[in-house]
């Protein structure tokens, strides 16, 4: 995975240049290319078949009227023009954004806290492993598990609230609570995994920096902000890019619990795409929505890389 390459030290340009002896000829390079292509071919083939072709076909379909069972009919920009006047699309964007903010905000802070605990306190492999457990359970199972535990009428969580004298809450059924609840369920599932990624980043920070900081009398708070955070930035950035992209694509939890309801309160963009394409068989429109989401995600990832300087490491 790309995680490790970002976390480790980049070889400097000077090393790479001086490394190769001069007698490497052009022919030899081409020979390497053949071998390289041979080894890369399976992955490239998979990439082309499963990612590139479907993406290109998806972009093509976004300009058509296509009910999956008939043939696509070219309609130009009609789907896109309709989307910009589609109240449900803007609602879906708003709902998705609310989800991403809640999900990423809490998840990152909690995961960072867990990672620090793993690094400094919980050194047993067992405990570190337990933190990962929720991530090992399938998404849909996690969603159903919480769906039942948080049920208004017969859920154990509401029963406990009642014992405490707190009124029951319709976690999934209430318009205000549905998105925070779904966000919480996914935080619960992903925080251990995210913590593990950050933990790996923490391990790349040289120990002597902390020793020096300690000698200079820096408080733990200062050490955290002046050493840990800056040196963790490349890893944290990667984690953010991956989790934010994943977060925008929230679907399964919504599909097995609220299905977009109540009214439109949890109709996130991916669910809306699914609804338009697969339930209402409007694949052209669904594809156009997907293309827009694709562009948004690309822009978000680009901005993150650009402004958080993801390809630089302060250790260099």
């Amino acid at each position: 995975m790309a995680t490790t390459s970002l976390g480790t030290r980049k070889p400097s340009r000077r090393e790479a240049d001086s490394g190769g002896p001069k007698r490497v000829s052009r022919r030899r390079n081409i020979g390497d290319l053949r071998v390289a292509l041979f080894f890369v071919a399976p992955a490239v083939l998979g990439f082309v078949l499963f990612y590139l072709l479907p993406t290109i076909r998806g972009i093509y379909l976004s300009f058509t009227d296509y009910s999956i069972l008939g043939n696509p009919v070219w309609v130009g920009l009609k789907n896109y023009l309709k989307i910009f006047q589609d109240k449900l699309f803007w609602n879906a964007m708003g709902v998705t954004l609310e989800y991403v903010l809640l999900n990423i905000g809490f998840q990152t802070v909690i995961a960072l806290g867990l990672a620090l605990l793993m690094y400094h306190v919980a050194k047993s492999t067992l405990i570190r492993g337990i933190l990962l457990l929720p991530y090992l359970v399938a998404n849909v199972i996690v969603a159903l598990l919480w769906f039942w535990m948080l049920d208004y009428q017969i859920g154990i969580f509401n029963q406990m609230l009642q014992w405490l004298g707190i009124p029951r809450v319709a976690f999934f059924g209430n318009e205000f609570w549905s998105i925070p609840t779904i966000a919480f369920v996914n935080i619960w599932r992903h925080m251990g995994y995210t913590a593990l990624l950050i933990f790996a980043g923490l391990q790349t920070i040289p120990k002597q920096l902390y020793e020096v900081a300690n000698l200079d009398g820096a408080s733990p708070w200062q050490t955290f902000w002046k050493i840990t955070m800056p040196l963790l930035r490349p890893v944290l950035l990667l984690v953010m890019v991956v989790t934010i992209t994943g977060s925008f694509q929230i679907f399964d939890t919504v599909a097995v619990t609220t299905q977009g309801g109540p009214v439109n309160a949890s109709r996130v963009i991916q669910y809306y795409i699914y609804q338009r394409a697969f339930s209402e068989q409007d694949f052209g429109y669904g594809s156009a929505l997907s293309v827009i989401l694709f562009i948004i995600l690309a822009v978000v990832a680009f901005l993150q890389m650009k402004f958080l300087r993801g390809n630089e490491n302060d250790l260099d």
Partner: peptide, 20 residues
């Protein structure tokens, strides 16, 4: 009759079975 928001989750027959 129960509020709509409370019907998301357990099925109506199940809540009937629970005496609600």
């Amino acid at each position: 009759m129960p509020k709509l928001e409370t019907t998301v989750g357990a099925s109506m027959p199940d809540t009937f079975g629970a005496g609600k």
